[in-house]
C-alpha cells in the first residue's frame, strides 16, 4: 500500500471518527483554541492598530515590537510559558492540566496572531486617503466618528486580510500544542512520528491543511460580504465612468513608520 491509499484508508476508518482521539474531538480542540487565540489577539491588536493608524503616533514602536514578537518562534514561547503556567496553577486555582497544555498553547497562538492583525489594521488605516479624512474633519466629524464611519469601513478589507493571515497561521501552527500534551490535530502528527505510523501522520497533515484552506476560504467570503459595493473595482450596476477621485490604497504611510514585512 502506498502512502496515499494508506492515508485515505486511515481517514475513512470509522474507528478514527469516534472516541477522545477521534477526528471530531481533535478537530473541535483545534478549532476552539485557534478561535479563542485569534479572538483574543484581535481584541488586543485592533484597538492598538486603530489608534496608531489614526493618529500616526507610536507607530514605529508598536510595529517594531510586533515584528520582534514575530521573530520569536512559537515553539520557544511554548516552552517558556509552560513552567510558569504550571507553577502558577495552585496559586491562581486553575487545573494543572491547563498549565501544562491549554495555557502555553493559547499564549503562543495569541502572540503569533497579534502581529498580522496589528500591522494589517495600521496599514489599512494609513492607506485611507488623507484628503478624505480632512474632508470629514472639515465637515465636523469628531475623531472617533472619522475612525468609525470613514477610516475603518475603508480599511476593512485590509484589516480583515490581517485577521485572515493570523487565523491561517494559527490553525497551521496550533499543531504544536500536541508537543505540550494538548489535543488538536497536531496529536496525529506527534503520535504518528512517535509510533512510526505514517498513515496517521499524513492524515494529520491533510486534516490541518484542509482546515487552513477552509479558514482561508471562509475569510475570503466574509471579506467580500462586508466590503462596501462602492469599494469593489467593478460593481456591475451602472457604468463606472471616469477615474476614481481618490487614491485608493496607494498612499505611502506617513510619519516614517515602517509597515514591516507583512
Amino acid at each position: 500500500m502506498d502512502a496515499l491509499t494508506a492515508t485515505v484508508a486511515w481517514l475513512l476508518d470509522p474507528a478514527h471518527w469516534s472516541g477522545t482521539d477521534g477526528i471530531p474531538i481533535r478537530l473541535w480542540e483545534h478549532v476552539w483554541i485557534s478561535a479563542l487565540s485569534v479572538l483574543t489577539a484581535a481584541v488586543i491588536a485592533l484597538p492598538i492598530g486603530a489608534f496608531i493608524g489614526h493618529t500616526g503616533r507610536a507607530a514605529s514602536l508598536a510595529i517594531n515590537l510586533a515584528n520582534i514578537g514575530r521573530a520569536v518562534p512559537s515553539y520557544a514561547i511554548l516552552v517558556i510559558v509552560l513552567p510558569i503556567s504550571l507553577r502558577l496553577a495552585p496559586d491562581l486555582g486553575y487545573p494543572p492540566a491547563w498549565g501544562l497544555s491549554e495555557i502555553p498553547t493559547f499564549t503562543a497562538m495569541t502572540l503569533l496572531a497579534i502581529p498580522p492583525i496589528l500591522v494589517g489594521t495600521y496599514a489599512g488605516l494609513r492607506e485611507v486617503d488623507r484628503d478624505l479624512v480632512e474632508a470629514a474633519r472639515g465637515m465636523g466629524m469628531r475623531e472617533r466618528q472619522i475612525l468609525s464611519r470613514l477610516e475603518v469601513p475603508l480599511a476593512l478589507p485590509v484589516i480583515l486580510g490581517g485577521v485572515r493571515t493570523a487565523a491561517v497561521q494559527v490553525v497551521a501552527t496550533a499543531t504544536l500544542g500536541a508537543v505540550v500534551a494538548y489535543g488538536g490535530l497536531g496529536r496525529y502528527l506527534i503520535d504518528g512520528i512517535a509510533r512510526n505510523e505514517t498513515d496517521r501522520l499524513f492524515a494529520g497533515v491533510v486534516l490541518v491543511a484542509a482546515l487552513a484552506l477552509a479558514v482561508e476560504g471562509g475569510f475570503a467570503l466574509i471579506q467580500r460580504a462586508i466590503t462596501s459595493p462602492g469599494l469593489r473595482a467593478s460593481t456591475g450596476s451602472g457604468p463606472a465612468a471616469g477615474p476614481r477621485p481618490y487614491r485608493q490604497l496607494a498612499e505611502v504611510p506617513r510619519g516614517g513608520g515602517e509597515v514591516g514585512t507583512a
Binding site: D131, L132, E134, A135, A136, R137, G138, M139, G140, M141, L150, P153, L154, S228, G230, L231, R244, P245, Y246, Q248
Partner: peptide
C-alpha cells in the same frame, strides 16, 4: 463651527464606501 460651514474640496472628497444619498446626508 465646522458643521455650520459647507466644505467642498478638490476632487470632491466623496466617501467611496457610501452611496450618493448617504454622502449628501453626511452633515
Amino acid at each position: 463651527l465646522r458643521r455650520g460651514i459647507g466644505y467642498v474640496i478638490q476632487q470632491t472628497g466623496l466617501f467611496p464606501h457610501q452611496t450618493i444619498g448617504e454622502n449628501v446626508a453626511t452633515v
